[in-house]
Design a protein around this nucleic acid. Sequence first.
DNA 1: GAGTTTGAAACT
DNA 2: CAGTTTCAAACTC
Length: 762
Amino acid sequence: MDTPDRPRSAAAAGGGGGFEDSPVFNFINSLSPIPPPKPLDSAHNVQLFKSSDLAPVSSIFASPHVNPAKESKLPIREDSVQLSRELHSPNSVRTRIGATSSIRMIRCKNIVSENCSITCYLNESNSSKSSEPIQLCGASAESDKNQNTDGKKDLTTEEDLTDLEFVLLDQSGLEKMDSSQSGNNVCENQLSEQHKDELGTCVGEYMIAHQPSNDTLRLAPPFEEETQLVNETLETDLFSCKSLLTDGPSGSYIQNSAHDPHLYWAGAVEGSATDYTPQMLPGACQSQMVPNDQNCNKLNEPSDCLPMDQNVSSQNLRGMRRRCLFNEKAGSANKGVKNTSVRHSANSATPKRKTSSSDNNLKTMRTPPCALPGIGLHLNALATVPKGKTVPPNDTQSSLNQASNVQSAVGSSPSIADPHTVNDDSSQTTMVAYVDGSGQASPKNKRHKFDNADGTSCKRCSCKKSKCLKLYCECFHAGVFCSEPCSCQGCLNKPSNMETVLSTREQIESRNPLAFAPKVIRTEPGQELADDSNKTPASARHKRGCNCKKSSCLKKYCECYQGGVGCSVSCRCEGCKNAFGRREGVALLSIEETKRGCEEKNEGVKEETIDNDKHIVIYQGSDLAPAENVLTTPSVADCRPLAALPPSSFKRPRSSTKLTGYSSRLEAPLKSDMLLSPFESYAEMVLGDGPSNTLKGGSSPQTSIKVVSPNKKRVSPPRIGTGLSPICKSGRKLILKSIPSFPSLCGDISNEDPNTSSPVPP
DNA sequence: GAGTTTGAAACT
DNA sequence: CAGTTTCAAACTC
């Protein structure tokens, strides 16, 4: 409804927007073995959670549009494979599929069960298509509950099965939706491709599962076992991949990451941009992947629509990659948690971190995000790398590098990536943009990589003295390894120096937890291009605000301006003339702000101001509803259309690509304080502790998420997610927490929800 | 492409 | 925490 996407998906699925209600739709549903697309979202969400455990939140929040499909794919993989089978095979197969799916669901639930509802809501808002996602969530939740009770759920239960099936179907449906195809054929093809992806993902998951980590978060063994049974062959392949890929210290970790990353990289980013097809994915992984597919029997099927398939596949790959990354991450994270130093051990080299177990605990406690962040980094790294760099098809090496990057990102930077996970979204968006549009990363992207990724995508640095181990280095800052595109000198930001990189990152992080957080959180520039994006403005937030003096916040020197975000209270700029929103315009609690605010014209810009200790949102401009203000960035408040806002350069890239993701990221980081506190909650959420309640709780997550901007810009939950992911720490918590925290928001949101949440008028 | 400007990061 | 230095990006020519 709200978004054009939905309708498409619905159409693809065989319905049109709001088809569900139609008798025809019902009839079709009853007839067709394939469940309606609805589940997609839910399933998607669920899987996301599952896959990433921690990451899921970010992923969830990540831009819904692109991500959903990808994400859906991720979770789907196993299911999808099964699905394919199911499609072709008798019910027995189905049940089995259902079982597997249920398993996955369980995982998700296990990890994020509490959050599931929330995420679902988010997705909804994101997708804004219909209430379906909610239903799905509900269904999934139910199934989860059931499963949870038994550890595994009875497959026999039709409802459960249906739910699972829906999930699978949904995934396929999502892909379809994404690709905008119409027929089942496409779906099948996609499925086949997905299967491939799944193989990879499954493998990754499997690997993760096998990993010795003591993750509480981890899936129950049973699931793993089942999956193994299903994917035994895959497993072997995976191992081979690992062996090939594992260079770094953290074998399994790297493996997975590497494995995925490549696929993800090549397929998603480059693929889209440079015509690389997933198939082109480098090396070992790929080749192995193929066998896996064969095993699955689904791979064989060719993709009739190459373009579509490729796109889809690339997307799927992404999703897959992500998933793997998440999984890995989760695994690593878990390790870190339980094994205390495990994660660090992976990074292990870093003596600093090692300190004492207690320290580690403290770290985790203090910055839960750190653990999570890794995920974000992965995503970010992946996303970023491809974009900015247009990785040469160098095959294995590059892939390895990427993989290593991923690893590093995962291990090292908790903060960044997430944000970037956000980046995932962003990456997805970018991919889409590229694919759809020019497709290729323009050479210009070098500098503009920022724009694209803003934080997430790879940046071609030209560091000379920093050895690419300082925040000066964009690549390092983004959590990605330097690669060929870089013109850096004495670069140590390479996979071969993983330990150094990780240790350095940790140091920097220890110094400044937000160091790797995206500078600015963007809402969704990309959306402009993309479907929903239209609605969401390119809202963004400053991580900490700029300190411009001479640039008047009118040049890229200004982080805020560069990020397409208006200056906020947190800024310390002088003579701010930020086109996106002047800091002065913002009404701050602080006296200075008020003074300045008086001076300012109050262009109707709303800015959020957060007290160092508190999150305080002040909306001067009354244009937007408070809820929006909160969710959206000042820029949005400013009412400057994303497109309009940014001067040329960054708009383009960003808008096309990352913005969505970033925005979410950015949001998270708003303040360190916020970050930390939220983080705690986040950790809890992840763990399944009370905090999740907060997230859910304050109010229906839906509402919070949905809070869409009154302007019709929907504050895309994804954003939140994205933002969160990269920054994980603050991001997730921030958003979630912040939302409920604001009384006004709740009220506003609730008020707005009806309008914004469900249907956003196209 | 080289040089300058700028503001963030790093350092003290 | 504040001031200074270092750094690399952004910008200009």
